[in-house]
């Protein structure tokens, strides 16, 4: 599987995502924000960071990058897109996933390790996560409070659009509606989440739970390829 990791000016988790993708066994390379081509990437990762300095609003400027046109087309064709942290904010600004990320209710930047529950295992992002398992990943953001109006939250829930929830006993770290940490688009091929799976890719770093997401993507691509071949 070929993964492309987008580098915006101000991205700072691009090399971390590249490292994790390669560790999971993907062929991965960096994509420059001004380049409108995806260079054959089957999976596009929008990494964390502060794209364009988060000026105006997190993700607000990045969505106008030339590479975003190509990513929108890619998503439109059913291609896989994963947005992590700032990447989630960019996806939300671009309307590729529902909702908006507001300032944390603590009004502070929050860095800590959290536990996530996985709401579905039948998606390309979570297929390799064992049933019932929770994931231990770090969060590091100032604007991660997931917001959607109530009726739309019901609809999101009804269609299975909620993929990850904060599952710590002390509650969610940023005030997100319904403890939502990650969502899927309608079609199920675009996922955004605030925690950082790429930073939890090796036991020495405190957890390798995050690698399960990358493995899921790799396996689903393989299954997809063999399905197509058959």
């Amino acid at each position: 599987m070929k993964a492309g990791i987008v580098v915006f000016p101000g991205s700072n988790c691009d090399r971390d995502a590249l490292h994790a993708a390669r560790l999971a066994g993907m062929e991965a390379e960096l994509l420059w924000h001004e380049d409108p081509g995806l260079h054959g990437s089957e999976l596009v990762i929008l990494p964390g960071g502060f794209a364009y300095g988060d000026y105006l609003r997190a993700g607000a400027l990045a969505r106008f990058s030339p590479v975003m046109r190509a990513i929108e087309d890619h998503a439109e064709r059913g291609g896989l897109v994963l947005g992590i942290c700032n990447g989630f904010q960019v996806l939300a600004e671009a309307g590729l996933v529902p909702g908006a990320l507001l300032r944390n209710t603590s009004l502070r930047f929050e860095h800590r390790w959290v536990r996530l529950s996985v709401e579905r295992h039948d998606t390309p992002f979570t297929a390799a996560v064992p049933a019932g398992a929770t994931l231990r990943l770090p969060i590091a953001h100032g604007e991660g409070c997931y917001f959607l109006p109530e009726p739309e939250l019901d609809a999101l829930h009804a269609r299975g659009g909620i993929l990850f929830r904060y599952a710590d006993p002390e509650g969610n770290p940023n005030g997100s509606a319904r403890d939502i940490a990650g969502v899927l688009n309608q079609r199920g091929n675009v996922c955004g989440l605030m925690p950082h799976p790429e930073r939890a890719s090796e036991a020495v770093l405190g957890s390798d739970d995050g690698l399960l997401l990358f493995r899921s993507l790799l396996e689903s691509a393989a299954a997809h390829a063999s399905g197509v071949a058959a």
Binding site: C13, R108, F109, H111, P138, E202
Partner: peptide, 9 residues
């Protein structure tokens, strides 16, 4: 908790 301690992996 106000500092990002894990970026860089």
């Amino acid at each position: 908790t106000q500092y990002d301690a894990t970026v860089g992996a």
